[in-house]
Design a protein around this nucleic acid. Structure first.
Lengths: 147, 147
DNA sequence: GTACAACTTCAAGTCAACTTTAAGTCAACC
DNA sequence: GGTTGACTTAAAGTTGACTTGAAGTTGTAC
C-alpha cells in the first residue's frame, strides 16, 4: 500500500502538481495527509481525480464539480448527483450548440452574400441586416443551395 | 452633420462607453477626433461598430477583428477579408461543435449508465472507461427512449 | 557539510474583454 | 462663484483555471 507523492499522482492522472494543489486549495480535494510537510496520497485520490477529469471533459466548471462532491446530502448516491447536474449541463450545452449554429449561419451567410468592397459599406449593409449588395447586379436572394 | 459623443455612439450600438474607449485603446477603432478633450464621432463609426458587433456575434475575437480591419493590404476588398477569416473561423466552430457533442455524449452516457452509489466507485468505473455497473441487476443496455 | 531534487507556501501573473474606480477637466447653468 | 453632468486618463479589478516565481524546508547522496 504505497503512498503517492503529488508528482506521482499528477503523472498518473495527467495533471501538473500545481493543479492538484489548486484543487486542494479550492476545496475539490480534501487536504492530503502530510509526511514531513509533503502531501501523501492513497490510491483513492486517483478515483477522485478520474471523476474530476471526466466532469471537466463533460463541461463542468470546478465550482460545479465541488457541488458534485459536496453539494448534496451525504447519503446521496453518485448516480443521483450526476443526474441532477447533468440535466442542467445538457441544457447549457444545448444553448451553446445553438449559439454556435447561429455563428456558423452568420459566417456562411457572410461568405455567400457579402460582395462589399469596403468594410464601411459592409457595416451599412449590416445595419440594414444582412450584408451588402453585389457590386454590379443584384442577386435574386437565392436560398442556401442544399445543405 | 452632427458629431456624436461617445455615449451617444454607445447608446446607438448597444455598447458601454468604456467598451468604445477600450476598442480605441487596443487599436480596433482609430483614435477619435477630440473637441476640448472629448471624443467626437462622425456617422461612419456606426458602420465600423456594426462590423465589429457582427464579427463578435460570429465568434471572432477582438484580435481577429483587428486583423479584419488592419491585417490586409490596404486595397483588399471587404468580401475577401471576410472570406479568409470566416473560413478559418468555421473550422474552429466546427471543432467546438464537435467538442460539445462529445460532452453531450458523455453526459447522456453518464445519466443512462451510471448507477454508482459512491463517487469513488464511479471513479473506478471511469478508469476502466464508462461508468460503474448497476447495483443489483445489469440492465440490457437500452438505447435512449425516443427524443 | 554541502549539493541536489523534490517538495512546501504565498503571492502574483496569465488570458480576454471589458468594467470600475479615482482623480481630474470642461462647458453650461444659476 | 459654485454646482452639475458628461467627459477624460491611468490603473486596478473581474472571472476561471490554473501557472509561475520567490523563498524556504526536507531527505538523501556524495
Amino acid at each position: 500500500m504505497p503512498l503517492l507523492s503529488i508528482s506521482e499522482v499528477a503523472r498518473q492522472v495527467g495533471l501538473r502538481p500545481s493543479a492538484i494543489r489548486y484543487y486542494e486549495q479550492i476545496g475539490i480535494l480534501l487536504p492530503a495527509q502530510r509526511i514531513s510537510g509533503q502531501r501523501r496520497y492513497g490510491p483513492a485520490v486517483l478515483y477522485r481525480l478520474a471523476v474530476v477529469q471526466r466532469a471537466r471533459q463533460s463541461g463542468f466548471t470546478l465550482n460545479e464539480i465541488r457541488q458534485l462532491f459536496f453539494g448534496f446530502r451525504k447519503a446521496a448516491p453518485a448516480s443521483e448527483r450526476w443526474q441532477k447536474l447533468s440535466r442542467q449541463k445538457l441544457v447549457e450545452l444545448e444553448e451553446l450548440a445553438n449559439q454556435i449554429k447561429s455563428m456558423q449561419q452568420l459566417l456562411r451567410n457572410m461568405m455567400e452574400k457579402c460582395h462589399c468592397d469596403t468594410l464601411d459599406q459592409c457595416g451599412k449593409g449590416i445595419l440594414r441586416s444582412g450584408c451588402g449588395p453585389a457590386p454590379g447586379k443584384s442577386l435574386p436572394a437565392k436560398r442556401s443551395p442544399r445543405r
